[in-house]
C-alpha cells in the first residue's frame, strides 16, 4: 500500500483526526497493558521503544501497518518473558486455554476461563 493510499484511508475513517485508534478491542487492551506496566515500572519507555522497534523491523512487516498491534503484542510478550514475569510457554498454554474456553461457551455468554474443558 502506498503512502498516498494510507493517507486517503486515514481521511476516509471517522473521528476527529481520521482513523480510530484501535480497530479491535484486543489492540486497545494490549496498548493499555503496556502503558500500565510502564507506570508500574516493569520497564522504561526506552526499553519499550526498542522492543517495539525490533518487532517492526522484522522482515515481512506490512507496508500498511495493519500488523502494528501484532508487533506491539509480540514486543509486550517478549518483555514479559525477559523480565521473568512469565515463561512464553505459560502464555501460550493459557492462550490455548482461553480459546478452548471460548469454544465451549454458548454464544452470547461471557467467556470465562473456567469454561475450558481441559483446564486442570
Amino acid at each position: 500500500m502506498s503512502l498516498r493510499d494510507l493517507i486517503t484511508h486515514s481521511k476516509g475513517l471517522p473521528s476527529q483526526g481520521g482513523s480510530p485508534a484501535f480497530v479491535e478491542p484486543w489492540q486497545a487492551e494490549a496498548f493499555a497493558m503496556v502503558v500500565a506496566l510502564h507506570d508500574r515500572g516493569l520497564f522504561t519507555w526506552d526499553e519499550w521503544a526498542h522492543a517495539l522497534s525490533a518487532e517492526l523491523k522484522r522482515p515481512g512487516a506490512l507496508e500498511d501497518a495493519s500488523d502494528y498491534y501484532h508487533c506491539w503484542l509480540e514486543a509486550l510478550e517478549t518483555l514479559v518473558v525477559t523480565k521473568n514475569v512469565a515463561a512464553r510457554s505459560e502464555v501460550e498454554a493459557l492462550a490455548a486455554s482461553w480459546q478452548r474456553a471460548a469454544h465451549a461457551t454458548p454464544h452470547g455468554e461471557p467467556i470465562r476461563l473456567e469454561n475450558d474443558p481441559d483446564r486442570s
Binding site: A30, M33, L73, L94, A95, H103, A104
Partner: peptide, 15 residues
Amino acid sequence: DNELDPMAARVRALE
C-alpha cells in the same frame, strides 16, 4: 459458539 482469535486469546492470557 464464541471464538477468540489467536491475538485476542494471547491478550487475555497476558492479562
